[in-house]
Amino acid sequence: MATKAVCVLKGDGPVQGIINFEQKESNGPVKVWGSIKGLTEGLHGFHVHEFGDNTAGCTSAGPHFNPLSRKHGGPKDEERHVGDLGNVTADKDGVADVSIEDSVISLSGDHCIIGRTLVVHEKADDLGKGGNEESTKTGNAGSRLACGVIGIAQ
């Protein structure tokens, strides 16, 4: 089992970053940390998408990683996509320092995120509470600013 993974985020604009993942036990939580720069100040949706395909930019990554066919939600919700990591918060300089621990994603097994795409979005994720159909699919997080395929790390 891989215990570490990394993702280099890039987009068409100024947004870029490096996100690290570490899972010490196969059924334990995954620590997610790193930094994203070039964002507007505020909240930005942060999700693992189904495919590791960036051939047409971030759009070819498909929908959120959702092997259990659930509705979109927040990272602490029972009803959520596996890939729903909530929001990252950018400061006035456009930098989001990421520090998350998640017990639904994994670096092995059915919820493995390796080979899938991590995406940072234009807007805040409403965590499935926006009151419309799009909220239950995407959290109304808007366009995909930057993305990268999650790969095994040393």
Rank of each mutant, 00 (worst) to 15 (best):
A2M: 09
T3R: 12
A5D: 08
V6P: 04
L9S: 04
G11D: 07
D12R: 13
D12H: 09
V15A: 14
I18C: 10
I18G: 05
N20P: 02
N20K: 11
N20S: 10
F21V: 01
E22Y: 07
K24M: 10
E25A: 10
E25Q: 05
G28E: 13
I36K: 02
G38H: 05
L39G: 01
L43D: 03
G45P: 13
H47A: 04
V48I: 15
V48Y: 02
V48A: 02
E50K: 07
G52T: 03
T55E: 06
C58R: 06
T59A: 15
S60E: 06
S60T: 14
S60Q: 09
G62W: 13
L68Y: 05
R70A: 02
K71F: 07
K71W: 13
H72A: 11
H72P: 08
G74R: 07
P75S: 11
P75N: 06
K76F: 14
D77W: 02
E79N: 10
E79R: 08
K92D: 11
K92P: 12
D93A: 12
A96R: 00
D97R: 12
D97A: 11
V98K: 00
S99N: 14
E101R: 10
D102V: 09
S106Q: 08
S106M: 00
S106G: 09
S108F: 15
S108W: 12
H111A: 13
H111Y: 11
C112A: 09
I114R: 01
R116T: 00
T117I: 13
L118R: 02
V119W: 03
E122A: 13
A124Q: 12
D125R: 07
D126K: 03
K129Q: 14
G131C: 03
N132R: 10
E134I: 05
E134G: 14
S135M: 07
T138S: 10
G139Y: 08
N140H: 06
A141N: 06
S143C: 12
R144Q: 12
L145Q: 12
C147T: 15
C147F: 11
G148D: 02
G148V: 04
G148P: 03
V149N: 04
I150Q: 00
G151C: 14
G151I: 03
A153I: 09
